[in-house]
Amino acid sequence: MTCWDTVQAYWLRSLGFGENALPLTNISLCDQFVLIGSGMLWNLYFGLLALSLGFVFAVGLAMAKASRNKWIRKPAEWYIFIFRGSPLFIQFFLVYFFITTVLRGSVDVFGLFTIPTAWLANAWAGAALTLFLNTSAYSAEIFYGALMTVPKGDLEAADAYGITGRDRFFRIEWPTMLRLGWPAYTNEAIFLFHATTLVFFSGFPAFQQRGDALYYANYLADKTFNPFVPYPIVAFYFIILTLVLIGIFGLVNQRLNRHLPSHQKKRIRLRPQLIR
Rank of each mutant, 00 (worst) to 15 (best):
I240M: 11
F225R: 15
S14P: 03
L198N: 09
S67M: 12
T164I: 09
N43S: 14
G18D: 03
A9H: 04
L245I: 13
L129Y: 09
T224N: 09
E156G: 06
S139E: 05
A189R: 00
F110D: 08
R258V: 10
L12K: 07
L112V: 14
L61Q: 04
A21F: 07
R171L: 12
T186E: 01
P75V: 03
L44N: 03
P116S: 11
A128R: 03
A9P: 02
V234M: 07
I190G: 00
A58C: 11
A189T: 14
L256I: 08
P183V: 01
S86I: 14
T2D: 15
V244H: 00
I90T: 11
F17M: 13
M63T: 08
A158Q: 05
S106H: 11
P227D: 04
R210E: 09
I233V: 09
Y161R: 13
V102C: 06
I275N: 06
P87C: 09
W4R: 14
R271K: 12
S262N: 10
V109K: 06
L251K: 12
A127N: 01
R166Y: 14
A235R: 05
R271S: 09
L241W: 07
G250F: 01
A121S: 12
A137H: 04
P116G: 12
F200N: 04
A9T: 03
A21Y: 07
R179C: 09
V95A: 10
A184M: 10
P232R: 04
W42A: 00
G105D: 10
K70R: 15
R168W: 04
G211A: 11
L155T: 07
P175Y: 08
I99Q: 02
T196F: 06
A58W: 01
I142T: 10
I72A: 05
V109H: 07
W42T: 01
P23M: 06
L120S: 07
A157P: 08
A184T: 13
L214F: 13
R166N: 11
A195Q: 07
G60N: 10
F207T: 12
A184F: 02
L35N: 01
T197V: 14
W182V: 06
A189H: 02
A137L: 06
L260S: 05
T2M: 07
E19I: 01
F57W: 15
S28K: 05
V95C: 04
N218I: 04
Y231E: 03
P151Q: 05
D222M: 15
K70T: 14
E77D: 15
A235N: 04
L61N: 04
C30S: 12
T130N: 02
G39A: 10
I90P: 00
P232H: 06
I36F: 01
K74R: 12
V56F: 14
L178M: 13
T130I: 07
Y96F: 14
F89W: 15
P151W: 06
A125L: 13
S52I: 13
A76K: 01
G162C: 07
L129N: 06
F132T: 13
A9R: 08
T101H: 14
Q32R: 07
R271C: 02
R104K: 15
D159A: 15
D167P: 00
